[in-house]
Write a protein that binds this DNA or RNA. Structure first.
Length: 519
RNA sequence: GCGGUUGUAGCUCAGUUGGUUAGAGCGCAGGAUUGUGGAUCCUGAGGUCGGUGGUUCGAGACCACCCAACCGUACCA
């Protein structure tokens, strides 16, 4: 077939990798989720604010060091005046810009929330996309740890508002100052050790993934993965590695002296003996632990125990801008993917204190704390838990088109409109098929509950036929002969035109009852 | 970025040691059926065999390079 090859090449329809189309069911599920999240934030006194998808790249802080090009991880383009702009990669940096730019008009502390898509130009993976939705809440201009404590409580409330039972999630809290103090104690303080410090923090962040022994390898010589790839370690001494491993496995102990004074300590709970850095009241380590003690007491005072908000020194979070308390929401139930495999889901949201972010734009310090929920990720988990998509939207009633002269079409349109006026989802058949059977086939595949039929016979007596497609489908299981099936006109009722809406309502109600009964 | 696996119709896949015009199932479209959904039957459309180059009388198959997807790993604000 040589002439076949001469046919013009068709364009291949394809989605850029790492991006997804969203179905009606997904969109409705996300709306359901964001509505619940928003209710919690509003109740805590937060107000919405929205910033655009694009920012100047310098506002996002994503220029490569020693280069006038933006970081590869962000989608960037040059404006017609040569300035670099980038698609936002989170909602925090744009908020910092918004606050700095409108500083005189904003009443501090400024409590806001916002949902939106963010973009990351990196390799997509299972459950990781290059466009995804985050839902953030931040308090700008509040320096005290009570603001951080409140954020943790709000996260816990949000989890429960989404239908995640107490015990199926936990908010884990740590403080960057604690980790910084430990790193200082093992001689990794100072500018010259930035690289090794990052290596150690990254290793600590892998605790979920590789366990304590995996982290031990990464802290010392390195680790080889199953494909044979080798990851270089941080080359810590045994003593220093034990110190780091010790803090990962430590718990917070809070003791009150009865006079309202609270002291807090981290005590190791694992096999690696953790020796706290030498006591010095003003040290960074000590103020970190003290803050954790305060947060723990503050949330406990409102009834949030360690089953909901737990101090956990193994939380690391982002390496770039957090300066104090950090927290993340973790799901504790098993999640299985489409292939039926168990998946370690990990964190569905997190945040922390970023006291330096707004002040990049200003001559004065502006403390801030906030967190972000990964909406798409959380939705996957909630679907799994059966917490979403339970109240499915019913497909529209289909009004069949029997005759195509303008007068008949007008009557069909009017019937459709009557249903809509009564608040019932309805559509008149708009396809090309003139065969009535094909229209019912359309309605069937569409998932329609009911078909309305008015041909010449019915019109003559001002009647309509109302066909219960759900009941009919059930009956069709018993049918073997097509002709008999047609003649039976099963689950079909003839009513006067004026009674159509009432009868449709009756059938829909019966169907709803049936669905409820069968779960 | 590094390592591994895989690329044949819209989807899932067959295709012999290299041998004529590349197949199946599902799906899709038309018909049996212009007033009744399922099942059935008939007919049809749909392919740069991931790409380029090479070896060969001859390549979907063999070789080289490239591209993409998947898995692991690294990075991840």
């Amino acid at each position: 077939m040589n002439d076949k090859k001469k046919k013009p090449q068709k364009l291949k329809a394809r989605l850029p990798r790492g991006f997804v189309d969203r179905s009606a069911a997904d969109i409705r599920a996300v709306n359901e989720m964001t509505t619940k999240i928003r209710e919690v934030y509003e109740r805590y006194g937060f107000d919405p604010v929205e910033t655009p998808l694009f920012e100047y790249t310098d506002a996002l802080g994503k220029f490569l060091p020693d280069s006038d090009r933006p970081n590869e991880g962000v989608f960037s383009l040059q404006d017609d005046d040569e300035q670099w702009m980038s698609a936002r990669y989170d909602l925090t940096a744009p908020l910092a810009r918004h606050v700095a730019e409108n500083f005189n008009d904003i009443q501090l502390p400024y409590r806001t929330y916002r949902a939106g898509y963010v973009f990351r130009n990196e390799k997509p993976g299972p459950g990781r996309f290059r466009q995804f939705m985050q839902f953030d809440a931040d308090t700008v201009g509040a320096a005290g740890v009570q603001a951080d404590a409140e954020m943790c409580m709000m996260m816990a409330d949000t989890m429960e508002a989404l239908g995640i039972k107490r015990g199926d999630y936990v908010i884990r809290v740590n403080n960057r100052k604690v980790l910084d103090g430990v790193l200082e104690a093992i001689g990794l303080g100072g500018e010259e050790n930035t690289g090794r410090r990052l290596t150690v923090l990254r290793a600590m962040d892998k605790l979920d993934k590789f366990g304590i022994d995996g982290v031990r390898m990464l802290l010392k010589d390195g680790r080889k993965d199953e494909s044979g790839d080798f990851t270089k370690g941080a080359a810590l001494s045994e003593t220093d590695a034990v110190m780091v491993l010790g803090i990962l496995q430590s718990d917070l102990q809070v003791s009150a002296d009865g006079a309202g004074r609270v002291t807090a300590n981290l005590v190791s709970s694992g096999p690696d003996q953790f020796l706290p850095p030498i006591y010095s009241p003003g040290s960074i380590y000590h103020s970190g632990v003290e803050e954790l003690g305060q947060i723990s007491s503050l949330v406990a005072a409102s009834g949030y125990g360690p089953d909901r908000i737990k101090i956990d020194p193994s939380v690391v979070r982002g390496l770039e801008y957090y300066t104090g308390p950090v927290y993340e929401a973790e799901l504790l139930f098993d999640v299985t993917n489409e292939k039926g495999e168990k998946v370690v889901f990990g964190s569905v949201g997190g945040g922390g204190r970023y006291d330096g972010l707004v002040s990049r734009f200003m001559g004065q310090p502006v403390p801030a704390t906030g967190f972000s929920i990964g909406v798409s990720r959380l939705m996957t988990a909630l679907k799994n838990l059966g917490k979403l998509g339970q109240d499915e939207v019913i497909a529209p009633v289909v009004v069949c088109v029997m005759d195509r002269d303008t007068e008949s079409l007008g009557r069909t349109q009017k019937l459709t409109q009557e249903l809509r006026t009564a608040g019932i989802r309805a559509e008149m058949y708009q396809g090309q098929k003139k065969n009535f059977g094909d229209q019912l086939k359309y309605a069937d595949r569409r998932g329609s509950p009911i078909a309305i039929i008015q041909g010449g016979d019915e019109r003559a007596t001002n009647q309509v036929q109302i066909k219960d497609l759900i009941e009919g489908k059930r009956l069709s299981g018993e049918i073997t002969d097509n002709t008999a099936w047609r003649e039976a006109r099963s689950a079909q009722y003839a009513v006067a035109e004026g009674d159509m809406v009432a009868k449709v309502r009756e059938i829909l109600a019966a169907q709803a009852e049936d669905r409820a009964r069968n779960g």
